[in-house]
Design a protein around this nucleic acid. Structure first.
Lengths: 116, 116
DNA sequence: CGGTATCCATAGGGATACTG
DNA sequence: CAGTATCCCTATGGATACCG
C-alpha cells in the first residue's frame, strides 16, 4: 500500500487478480470447503450448498480441476461413482483463506459498530 | 482445511465471502491500488486503469466509500475538485493483499511448470 | 448417481451523450 | 472536471428436462 508508480501498481495487481480469478468466484471456496469437509460426490456437494445449481456446480468443478484445486476420480462399479477430493495443492490456500476469514470477521464488527 | 461438519463449514465460509464481497470484485483492488498510488481524482483513476468505464468506476467508488475503504472529499473552488483518498482502514487489507499476491505468484509458476 | 442440454430472465458492462 | 443517464448487448444463472 506504499506509494508506487503506475507500472509498479499494475505489476502488483496482476498476481492478486490471478488469485481472485481462482478463488474469488461466488462458489469456489464454498465448494472447496464442502469437499474438504468430506462431501465427495456430486449430489452431496450440491445438496450441501444452498442455492447452488447443478449447472453451476458442474462448470465450477471443471474449472477447479483445471486449477489443480480438486481431483476427479471415476470409480468403476455398479453403479459408477465419481469422487472429488481436495488436492494437497489446495491446502496452500490455507493462509489466504485464513486472512480472508480474519478480515471478514473484523469488517463485520466494523460495519456494525460505526454505521456512519 | 481440516475436517468439519457442515454447519462449521458454512460458519467458516461467511466471513470469507464477506471479504470477497468487499475486495473480490473485478475492479476494487485495482482502484484501491491506483488511489493508494496517488491518483486522487476521478479522471486520473479512470485513465490509470485500462478498460475501466466511467459508469463502473462511479458505482465502484460509491461502494468502496460505503465500505470505508476510501474517502471522498469535495473541494470548493474553480473548478470544483473531488479528491479520493485511501482510508487508514483500507490499510488493514495489507496482509490479505500480501497473501493474495504471494499465492498468485506461486500459482502462476505452478501453472507454467506442470501443464498436466 | 453424475452429469449435459435447453430455454429463458436478468444483471452487468460498453459506448455514447449529456448535465452542473 | 466529475460524474449521470440512456441504450443496447452479452454473459451468467435459474429452472427444467433429459441421457448414460
Amino acid at each position: 500500500m506504499e506509494k508506487k508508480d503506475h507500472k509498479d501498481c499494475l505489476a502488483a495487481l496482476v498476481p492478486v487478480r490471478d488469485t481472485l480469478d481462482v478463488i474469488g468466484g461466488k462458489w469456489r471456496i464454498l465448494i472447496l470447503i464442502s469437499i474438504s469437509s468430506g462431501n465427495k460426490n456430486f449430489r452431496k456437494i450440491e445438496r450441501s450448498i444452498p442455492k447452488l445449481s447443478t449447472k453451476v456446480l458442474s462448470s465450477e468443478l471443471k474449472i477447479m480441476e483445471q486449477d489443480h484445486l480438486i481431483t476427479r476420480t471415476v470409480i468403476n462399479g455398479f453403479p459408477v461413482r465419481t469422487e472429488y477430493t481436495a488436492t494437497e495443492y489446495s491446502k496452500t490456500l490455507k493462509n489466504v483463506i485464513a486472512e480472508l476469514h480474519d478480515w471478514g470477521i473484523n469488517h463485520r464488527k466494523k460495519v456494525f459498530e460505526c454505521s456512519e
